[in-house]
């Protein structure tokens, strides 16, 4: 969505236009839900976080500064809410707790479903600051700069966290025999 269009919709929301709100929510909800799912590994928690994220963002939209990008703002709320949710439930998920993604590829369903669970479990094993950069990179399609804006950290920190996160994931997936070293 172009920044100008986004700003128009934000302004309309600030004036109480619920149609504009509908368009904004529809545009971002899937990405926010998927980012939350990958942060939390659980569809129910992801739905809760998605809902809370939009409620917090939209009910405070009169305070939104158009100098910032709306998506940066909303993803930041989503990431923080996901982290808060993790703290609240004091997550101790194991591989078996991660709910599998439904219906992957047509011909390798069993294999890729299992691998998908393992990859998600390894993602869940990362510290939150590492997991959040991976999620924003892979599931929200953000650049280093955008991740930095969202998480309020310098780009070089984004880069180093992504580096460390990938290294840890690679090592763990090698240990599971999913990646050959």
């Amino acid at each position: 969505m172009h920044k100008e269009r986004e700003n128009e919709l934000v302004e309309a929301c600030q004036k109480g236009d619920r149609n504009a709100m509908d368009i904004l929510v529809r545009h971002y909800e899937r990405t926010v839900y998927n980012a939350a799912y990958r942060m939390l590994g659980n569809p129910d928690d992801a739905a809760d976080v998605t809902q809370v994220t939009f409620i917090k963002a939209l009910e405070h939209i009169d305070r939104f500064n158009p100098k910032f990008k709306f998506f940066s703002w909303i993803y930041r709320i989503a990431v923080n809410e996901s982290i808060n949710q993790l703290k609240r439930r004091k997550s101790t998920e194991s591989v078996s707790d991660i709910q599998a993604a439904p219906g992957p590829g047509p011909d390798e369903m069993l294999h890729s479903e299992q691998v998908g669970k393992e990859v998600q479990a390894v993602l869940m094993s990362l510290r939150e600051e590492y997991r959040s950069v991976v999620v924003l990179k892979y599931f929200s399609g953000c650049s280093y700069r955008e991740i930095g804006e969202i998480l309020q950290i310098p780009e070089k920190t984004v880069k180093s966290r992504l580096f460390s996160a990938r290294q840890q994931m690679k090592d763990r997936l090698e240990g599971l025999g999913i990646i050959t070293g």
Partner: peptide, 16 residues
């Protein structure tokens, strides 16, 4: 090669 595998696995995780 290892990093490319990881990248591919992450990108293949299906949208929920």
């Amino acid at each position: 090669a290892g990093m490319a595998d990881l990248d591919a696995y992450l990108k293949k995780l299906p949208e929920q």
